[in-house]
């Protein structure tokens, strides 16, 4: 299990990644993050919804209501242009962070 302190700065990046290919809703996003991380990272509910709130406030995502499968009405999220730009920035930032930190990692 990964310490949430370390990963905190990249929760938003993961959510944006999940939305790059199309709109999605809370549970689907959280489930896919778990699956892609091979069960190594589970995003807490409150972390997920804090991120939604923050990203929506910053204009990186927008939300809307839609009837999902089985007729259940859900809040869906979709990435905006700002969101894509922010995602690219975060990717570059991570490359750099990784390079720097890697310098100090032995084994």
């Amino acid at each position: 299990m990964i310490s949430s302190d370390v990963i905190r700065g990249y929760n938003d990046t993961m959510i944006l990644y999940m939305l790059l290919e199309g709109e999605s809703y809370g549970y689907e996003i959280s489930k896919n993050i778990r699956r892609l991380s091979q069960e190594k990272y589970v995003m807490k509910e409150t972390t997920l919804y804090s991120a939604f709130t923050r990203l929506e406030k910053n204009g990186c995502i927008s939300s809307f209501h839609k009837d999902g499968e089985a007729g259940k009405r859900r809040t869906y999220y979709r990435i905006t242009e700002e969101g894509r730009a922010y995602y690219r920035e975060k990717c570059i930032e991570w490359q750099l962070t990784q390079e720097v930190v890697n310098t100090f990692i032995k084994e």
Binding site: Y25, G26, Y27, S30, E45, T46, Y49, T53, R74
Partner: peptide, 16 residues
């Protein structure tokens, strides 16, 4: 609204 949405997500997870 947030509380309602979180409950939906938790229920989805529970069902699965």
């Amino acid at each position: 609204a947030l509380k309602r949405e979180m409950l939906d997500t938790m229920e989805d997870k529970y069902e699965e």
